[in-house]
């Protein structure tokens, strides 16, 4: 287990180096860098939402709210107050995590649909707070944010998000979260502090949503409340669902496919959303568990794992 973990890290670092070299050598132009940043931001958002929705089974559709907190707090820190980006980033993440905590506690009593709409409501309230606040530019939002995010920031951001979330999921804490998803009453009867684990999922998920917000704010020069409405939350949810809830690999693949599709369809913007929604509906009807639902790709890579599993199923 230990070894696989470090091999994975090593492979990603090689990937990082290659892309960085291509960027430095100006082989990848701005279009590709834009796409890479978008991809990274979306992966962080999707993977963090997957911790809440996919693994812990808490249906949240307010992720854009957490993202906006990361974006606004980091931008206030760097642009309005003149602090450095790393400090702004950290504050953005922490502020979002605190929001996750505040939102987490009262809403955790709710289940299913009710939780979903409560988180949707919270997300919208956060947006309306920005909208009504002149300090952050009201409806026009904050502009003139310096572009700090680059390939290195995005790559290591994604790496940290994925590794932290995978490390949680593949541990007793992750099993506790999954048990909450599978059967809350049984989980509690087995000594799992259900509230604690739901809150952890919300706080960690919100933390990384905040990170994604801070990165995108410091790449696209400006932020406005409309970018963080519930449509954005749905968009993130779709990334997760298309790939398959509860599968980190699936989530990443789903996010990459959709983000690339979006970029590819850029030339026909009016049809882009139509095609996007058709894909969403058709996926749900014909592949409701997502492209890789409940199948963690890592299983296929585990040495001998597949054959061993096959062996046990055949024993009577």
């Amino acid at each position: 287990m230990n070894k696989r973990f470090f091999i994975g890290i090593a492979i990603s670092l090689v990937f990082y180096g290659v892309v960085q070299a291509l960027i430095s050598g100006e082989i990848l132009n701005d279009f590709y860098i834009d796409t890479l940043v978008m991809l990274g931001v979306n992966i962080i958002l999707a993977v963090s939402l997957n911790l809440i929705n996919g693994f812990t089974g808490q249906f949240s559709i307010g992720h854009a709210g957490f993202m906006s907190i990361g974006a606004y707090v980091s931008a206030i820190m760097t642009t309005n107050l003149g602090y450095s980006f790393p400090l702004g980033l950290l504050c953005g993440c922490l502020a979002a995590a605190v929001a996750g905590l505040i939102i987490g506690f009262p809403t955790l009593r709710l289940k299913g649909d009710y939780l979903a709409i409560a988180t949707l409501g919270f997300g919208e309230i956060i947006r309306i707070v920005w909208l009504n606040n002149d300090y952050v530019g009201g409806a026009a939002g904050l502009n003139g944010i310096e572009r700090v995010t680059n390939w290195s920031w995005i790559f290591f951001g994604v790496l940290v998000a994925v590794v932290v979330i995978q490390n949680i999921v593949k541990s007793t804490h992750g099993r506790a979260m999954i048990s909450v998803r599978e059967n809350e009453i049984a989980a509690e009867a087995m000594g799992i502090n259900v509230t604690k684990y739901k809150v952890i999922a919300f706080v960690v998920g919100a933390f990384f949503a905040g990170m994604a917000g801070a990165f995108s704010a410091h790449y696209f020069y400006g932020i406005a409340p409309t970018s963080y409405n519930f449509m954005k939350s749905f968009e993130i949810l779709v990334f997760v669902v298309l790939g398959g809830l509860g599968s980190t690999a699936g989530t990443i693949i789903g996010t990459i496919l959709l983000t690339l599709l979006f970029t590819y369809l850029q030339d026909i913007p009016e049809w882009r959303m139509v095609i996007y929604s058709m894909i969403l509906i058709l996926t749900m009807i014909f592949r409701p568990k997502g492209l890789l639902g409940n199948v963690d790709v890592t299983k296929f890579f585990k040495k001998g794992g597949a054959s061993k599993n096959g062996g046990t199923t055949t024993t009577p």
Partner: peptide, 24 residues
């Protein structure tokens, strides 16, 4: 009320969470 999508081993392992020696 089993944890349906988890393996048999994982189901039992959940019971040890409350005595876990390692934190998050």
């Amino acid at each position: 009320r089993l944890f349906g999508e988890m393996t048999v081993l994982e189901n039992v392992m959940v019971a040890y969470n409350m005595h876990a020696q390692h934190n998050l």
